[in-house]
């Protein structure tokens, strides 16, 4: 469903991604792990072109992203993203945060969008916060709203960029719980995370990225049980 081919990314002289090839199937939850600065987030941000790849291509549902840069806004509608810093729109209510994209991009009537938003808020357990402004929410609540916002466009795939890294420890659980539900309902997800417990339990595939390349990938059992590479073993021994 998503095919990342030979992805390279330079920031100036610095080569952050040195040729990444990944295949993501429909309904799969792919967890990307690895040390900081290894290129995990850059890889994720390249998938929806928040970073422009220097070389390589991304094929989404058979459509080449790099060949269709003019349709990038259309393609991004199919790729939802959840950020480490939530990035909710502070000048809009929770409800408006969620309904903005469907009403502006899908020309959905506001009433219908509100209904959809309430349905999504119910799923993330925040229906009572619909009329609040984001500043009145806790970090965990903000992130759950951000997930609902990304889902409102009914994307083919959801990208999570360290969704729990900016949260107080006690709020990590509620966000991971929502993500688990998503995975259970067969949403296609790519999750950059330091939550090894989540990756192990929920991930269908684990990708270990270090130094701009995929050092190792496989099922959670393979990666966490029998890591093949010394670098993977070293990383896991430090974080587990």
């Amino acid at each position: 469903m998503i095919e990342v081919q030979n992805l390279h990314k330079y920031f100036g002289e610095l080569e952050v991604l040195k040729g990444i090839d990944v295949h993501i199937s429909k309904g799969e939850c792919v967890c990307v792990i690895g040390p900081s600065g290894g290129g995990k987030s850059t890889f994720l941000r390249c998938i929806n072109l928040l970073e422009m790849p220097t070389k390589g291509d991304i094929i989404i549902e058979g459509i080449s992203v790099m060949q269709n840069l003019r349709q990038i806004d259309k393609l991004r509608q199919k790729v939802g993203m959840v950020f480490q810093q939530f990035n909710l729109f502070p000048h809009m209510t929770v409800l408006r945060n969620i309904t903005l994209a469907p009403t502006k991009l899908k020309k959905m009537p506001q009433a219908e969008a509100n209904e959809l938003a309430m349905e999504l808020l119910n799923k993330v357990g925040l229906a009572d916060k619909a009329q609040e402004y984001p500043t009145r929410l806790s970090g965990g609540q903000k992130q759950r709203v951000a997930i609902a916002r990304a889902m409102a466009m009914d994307p083919d795939v959801l990208l999570f960029d360290e969704p729990t890294s900016a949260l107080d420890p006690e709020m990590v659980g509620e966000v991971l719980e929502v993500m688990k539900q998503l995975a259970k309902n067969n949403a296609t997800m790519v999750v950059v995370t330091h939550e090894m417990g989540f990756a192990r339990e929920v991930g269908d595939k684990i990708i270990f990225i270090d130094g701009g390349i995929i050092t190792e990938q496989g099922t959670p059992a393979e990666i966490f049980g029998h890591p093949q590479h010394a670098r993977t073993r070293e990383f896991l021994s430090k974080v587990l």
Partner: peptide, 18 residues
Amino acid sequence: VDKGQTEAGRSLGLSGRQ
């Protein structure tokens, strides 16, 4: 205005102008 705001907007599929 935080760069993350623009990124969030663009990631939803909004155009630069929107």
